[in-house]
Design a protein around this nucleic acid. Structure first.
Lengths: 213, 213
DNA sequence: CAACTGCAAACTGTAGACAGTTAACACCTG
DNA sequence: CAGGTGTTAACTGTCTACAGTTTGCAGTTG
């Protein structure tokens, strides 16, 4: 017996449309043609419009009167402001993680770091997936559901900006070191150091993104 | 020539429904009857459903399959977790405000504090409106639009919890002092002290809310 | 030839109708 | 009388049709 994740078409449409936006299939600046997308998803415009509203309030779409929805494009100033928000949230998460972590949390974090390093040393760029996994493991350790939810939403928007991001090796190496330092601070139960380390990490990631655009 | 804030009925419905939820006219736990509310707002169910989706993604409503939307009720654990989020955001805002404030920002903050104190000393409870105005003035000084937006959303949820809040005088007096201390830290350009002062302030407000429920 | 006007196609915004699900109540049964 | 069952009313979820706006293009005019 297969349980559908979402019973409603609108719920499915949210996921499907989110995918289209985040994968860049609907690129930044492009408009969302309701009849076209609805046909593509095999649904009518009603549920799709509900999905569009939700994604708009997640800031993955922008609504314009009588001109429908389009994918937002980001300016450098936007990116900086977005990273201010991300820093606020993830530094708080790092602090809480350092205060609340269990041995299992630390083990999980070290595991993700180890896998990232293996992949990196194998000559490949370590995939963005592992970076997300690290930040997710940290959020799990923080045990603050509302903060975790907001971080997820912000990360989505970062993915949107990250379209053609070419992670160069120096940046990747530095990120691996940052992650290790972060785990050490969390393992040591030092909230202040965890927060500071996260702040430095995100500052570098932000600078990297600004340099690439 | 009167310019409608929202051209679309869905946009108006978002504001109207938000009002119904935040004023408690649709109390926590109550379901949102689509036909009834649509009739009350003089619109059809289509735009209303779009509005419901948006408010759900703002966490002012909860969607249940085939049972529509209802206003969420908060447990003490929820309140604590929500204040962890609020603290992360507003502490960051306080830090940024201390770094970026202009003389005009400080003047505005002192003005709001002075008005709050006048109202309080006139024997009345100083209205929640002035508390919101203070936090808004601080956000303006922080100049971080994304953080400001998220704070606005969190404050909404706090208002929702705040339904029958009876602000007792000791709490109000302490809040006035907190606000003054916060302005001093911001005026002094001391981000660390501003953040710490904000953290203490919100911890007390949170404890107050937990005590009253 | 540039700019303006008018028209037509495409798209968004909204309403109303229909299908499927939930839930409550009356009724039956042990 | 308690518990289960069938039926019905209410409500949600979805689709289709229609009205109003925008936009691009052709035609016209200075």
């Amino acid at each position: 017996m297969t349980l559908p994740v979402h019973h409603s078409l609108a719920g499915q449409a949210v996921d499907a449309l989110r995918e289209l936006v985040l994968t860049g299939e609907i690129p930044p600046g492009a408009r969302v043609n309701e009849v076209e997308i609805a046909a593509r998803l095999g649904i009518s415009r009603g549920p799709l419009r509900e999905a569009i509203r939700q994604l708009a309030s997640e800031n993955l779409l922008v609504l314009v009167a009588h001109r429908g929805a389009h994918v937002p494009t980001a300016t450098p100033a936007d990116i900086r402001a977005l990273f201010e928000l991300r820093t606020a949230l993830e530094c708080a998460a790092a602090e809480l993680a350092a205060s609340r972590r269990t041995d299992a949390d630390v083990a999980r974090l070290r595991e993700v770091c180890a896998e990232s390093r293996r992949t990196y040393q194998a000559g490949e760029r370590f995939p963005y997936r592992l970076d997300l996994a690290f930040h997710q493991a940290l959020l799990d350790a923080a045990r603050s559901p509302h903060i975790a939810e907001q971080v997820r939403l912000v990360q989505q928007r970062v993915v949107l900006l990250r379209s053609g991001l070419n992670d160069d090796p120096p940046h990747q190496h530095a990120s691996l070191d940052d992650h290790d330092a972060l785990v050490d601070a969390v393992a040591a139960g030092d909230p202040y150091r965890a927060s500071l380390t996260m702040r430095k990490h995100l500052a570098r990631v932000c600078a990297q993104m600004l340099a690439e655009n």
